[in-house]
């Protein structure tokens, strides 16, 4: 088999592979920087919780109009935003902290979601919702993913400065501006949108993977926020291409294949990443003079 056969032929020959490639690459561009901010805000598990919170909305959409991406998407966004809103509200007006409040709401949401899916759908359908269908992206789904990625990148560019200030010194933002709560909500909305976009392609569970694994990986390669985002996008893109090729040649499900490739890149980075990886720390390097 030539390199052409291995690397390019699948995409050239099959339309569904091209769609999967475009969809997952565009998704990466939006989701990976969101993941970087989640890790920097010590909210790495928030993405996972929110992904579960989306489930009942998607399930209700599924209940009403079957396996229809539009209905499930609207439902997912609705449920995600509702949980994000309630979480913030409870955290701000009561003694409960944001993380505990989110845990409570996403568990309620998840239980509801499983209940609804098992009430009407079969377990095959549930698998579909949970693990996605990157190889069956239609035009509408691709446009939707592209729209969300565009909104994400523009929104990040606009709120970048207050968002960074909110991460590093929230107290300062509270003194000089009342925008802290708004910025936080905008960010949570972006998290929800990207998870919903991801569940089109990868399913609710794996959507978190393309968001968080490249973000965690980027910490081993870069130091400042802009560079972290760039590395995360690159890693996510490589994982998408390699994962799709792996799934094609080895006849594996594509979603898990993409996330597993991202996982392998993460593990390699943990070991060999130049910024605080295991091996570079073990190699004795003569210290500098100043």
């Amino acid at each position: 088999m030539t390199a052409w056969d291995f690397l390019f032929a699948p995409f050239v020959e099959f339309g569904f592979m091209r769609r999967a490639l475009v969809g997952s690459l565009v998704l990466s561009a939006g989701a990976a920087p969101i993941g970087v901010f989640l890790t920097l805000r010590r909210m790495s598990l928030t993405g996972d919780a929110m992904a579960h919170a989306i489930l009942p909305g998607a399930a209700i959409g599924f209940l009403i109009s079957g396996l229809d991406l539009f209905a499930m998407t609207v439902g997912g966004i609705g449920a995600g935003l509702l949980v994000a809103l309630l979480t913030s509200l409870v955290a701000r007006v009561t003694v409960l902290r944001e993380d505990a409040s989110l845990a409570a709401f996403y568990l309620i949401s998840l239980a509801l979601g499983v209940l609804i899916v098992s009430w009407k759908g079969s377990s095959v359908d549930l698998m579909h919702v949970l693990f996605g269908t990157v190889l069956a992206l239609d035009d509408a789904a691709l446009q939707f993913i592209a729209a969300i990625a565009s909104v994400t990148l523009v929104a990040l560019a606009v709120v970048w400065r207050p968002l960074v200030v909110e991460c590093v010194d929230p107290g300062y933002l509270r003194v000089v501006s009342g925008a802290g709560a708004t910025i936080h909500m905008i960010f949570m909305v972006l998290v929800v949108l990207n998870l919903v976009a991801g569940f089109q392609a990868l399913g609710t569970l794996l959507a978190v993977g393309i968001m968080m694994l490249p973000a965690a990986t980027s910490r081993f390669w870069a130091r400042d926020v802009g560079a972290l985002c760039a590395v995360a996008i690159l890693v996510a893109a490589v994982a998408c291409v390699a994962g799709l090729l792996l799934s094609y040649h080895a006849n594996l499900p594509s979603g898990p294949a993409i996330i597993l490739v991202a996982g392998v890149i993460y593990l390699v980075s943990v070991l060999f990443g130049p910024v605080g990886g295991v091996v570079p720390r073990l190699i004795p390097a003569p210290h500098r003079a100043g």
């Binding site: 920097l40 960074v164 991460c167 590093v168 010194d169 929230p170 107290g171 130091r223 400042d224 926020v225 972290l228």
Partner: peptide
């Protein structure tokens, strides 16, 4: 109250 582990350049801060 400040997240000192945050990799923000001194200029930006």
């Amino acid at each position: 109250e400040i997240d000192r582990s945050f990799p923000i350049p001194v200029f930006d801060f």
